[in-house]
Nucleic acid binder design. Structure first.
Lengths: 334, 334
DNA sequence: TTGTAAGCGTTATCAG
DNA sequence: CTGATAACGCTTACAA
């Protein structure tokens, strides 16, 4: 039923010309007489011809496709990054192959490999923190831009936010309000973004003359979402109890909010709360949550812009680290 | 610097055999002697050879890629659908090209066209409601599964949730609590999911002996997010004021919550609220919001399962409409 | 079992 | 300006 797709051959035949001429009107990079061009265009319209992008890709070694590997598309931050990336890519004639790695190094490895095999023109990814050697060798063969986080050992492009500064602002808000026992919850899984947030937390404390107390830092060296509530509870069980908590991401923020409530404590009177990575609904919870907002859409946009510029550079410009500013949004929880 | 990628030719040469033999060990669909196989495998390992998926795609007319077109990846429902779809696709050796249409028919058209040009094996999409004829013709050439919503005029596969039933349950909760003036806010842009939710709303009212009053239905025939607050305000301005509101999606739910608050009204005492499409944070707002939860992850999973089964069928089975159940989650707002 | 050769649908080179 | 023709990297008859 579905008649075979017309090829460039069919067009040539129908237009009474050669495939090269058809190709020329298609790509437009060689002169063609008006008569021929008209004939070709007529044939194209009549047969509903569409050039095969995959044949073209094979011939030109160019697919107009960008690979994206992120940890969790349901995380609002990442979904906004992807939205920005997709929008920019679309505007430039590229499309995105989306891979979600679930913070799993093995999955990440397979997906990077697969993207390379599919000959995407470039890759955007938020590294799990592993596979460094493999990634280094891959980066020698295909443009890669790290997003949100980066492998410090890798000499490569990256687009991130000012994690250290954002965390610093958040914790400074707390110290300014007189808090001295400020807890932190988060992962410590060797990922720059999180490490830098922890660093910002420590710096803000030290600036206020408060020593950075390991007992007030509830971190885990492994990514295990099911342990999140216990991690917050640990902190709340410290005596004297911390009077404020800074969470390293919004998931921990939500968990902390629940745990504090369940402990019968009041926010912000018993425990103040500031979370890194804002959510729209934080304005609607009770109390509304103070948070560090990230320019997620712009992160996505800038990342593909940088990638596309690399595609022209041919990768000869020095690696670039783009750091976008964050914004502390003060609401009711601190 | 980056040495040229090795091709099947290079492997043949290095292994002292022919390309066909190499291809045979690659695809494994023809016998090869152990000696040759070993030699080939050694060469592959030494040269770090990886078959070009795009050359293979050209030859086999099979790309192991699925196109996905949705309206908004930052909508938690869709991002969960995509997560389910990606997971299932990955497990079956497929990857996803993600396109976001922003509810824009023109963008949708370009993206569907582009996916076809890139020769994806199939397409999953949530139609904007337009481009029906184009989609019909496309569906004759490539397997397409509609997701979340469908074009009623199109005879085609779709995976959706029980929108009518879910809305019915939500509004029934309201009538059971004694509400008689129940407002509705939402789009009426000719999309099945929304139309069916409206139908469920009306049926629940009628079952309770309440006529379906157009003055209590604040809908808009065009997708224009900036008008959402005004749409809710219109409803709140009716006299006598509705004592309850049902919103057709979670965005309207958030807007409604804000508008009700800003009007100095209390939820649920002045105005009760139930929203279609649950969010995790609805459990944390004050009051917690009652909502209709959709099995989003499963929707994504089932959609690619259906698509992959069509790829085997060769599309000869009759079109299927898969309807997944929703669940009413009663919290504090109604 | 193995190799040769003909495509898959393009673009690009090179003569006319 | 135009038309053969050789790639691009792979799979698959067809022969041997």
């Amino acid at each position: 039923m579905a008649k075979k797709k017309a090829t460039i051959q069919d067009i040539a035949r129908a237009a009474g010309t050669s495939v090269s001429t058809v190709s020329r009107v298609l790509t437009g990079n060689a002169p063609v007489s008006d008569a021929k061009r008209a004939a070709v265009e007529r044939a194209i319209a009549q047969l509903g011809y569409r050039p095969s992008l995959i044949a073209r890709g094979l011939k030109m070694s160019k697919t107009f496709t960008i690979g994206v590997v992120i940890n969790d598309i349901t995380n609002p931050f990442y979904s906004m990054v992807v939205k920005g990336a997709e929008s920019e890519a679309k505007a430039c004639g590229y499309s995105l192959i989306l891979c979600v790695s679930n913070e799993n190094p093995e999955t990440e490895l397979h997906q990077l490999q697969m993207l390379h095999d599919k000959q995407v023109d470039g890759i955007i990814f938020g590294p799990t923190g592993h596979n460094t050697e493999f990634i280094r060798s891959l980066a020698a063969r295909i443009p890669m831009i790290q997003v949100d986080r980066y492998l410090p050992d890798l000499q490569s492009d990256a687009v991130v936010v000012d994690n250290e500064g954002g965390a610093y602002q958040a914790v400074k808000l707390l110290t300014q309000r007189g808090h001295r026992r400020i807890g932190l919850v988060g992962w410590q899984i060797g990922i720059t973004s999180e490490d830098q947030r922890i660093a910002g937390y420590c710096r803000a404390l030290e600036d206020a003359g408060i020593p950075c107390d390991p007992h007030l830092m509830s971190t885990s060296p492994a990514f295990a979402p099911e342990t999140m509530p216990a991690m917050v509870e640990t902190l709340l069980a410290r005596r004297p109890r911390p009077t404020a908590i800074f969470t390293i991401n919004n998931q921990f923020g939500i968990v902390a909010m629940q745990a504090i409530r369940q402990a019968g404590l009041n926010i912000p009177d018993d425990v103040a709360l500031v979370v890194f990575d804002d959510l729209a609904v934080f304005a609607l919870t009770s109390p509304a949550i103070s948070a560090v907002a990230q320019p997620a859409y712009e992160v996505g946009q800038r990342t593909v812009q940088l990638l596309l510029s690399r595609l022209k550079d041919d990768g000869e410009a020095p690696p670039q680290l783009i750091v976008l500013p964050t914004e502390l949004i003060v609401r009711e929880s601190a």
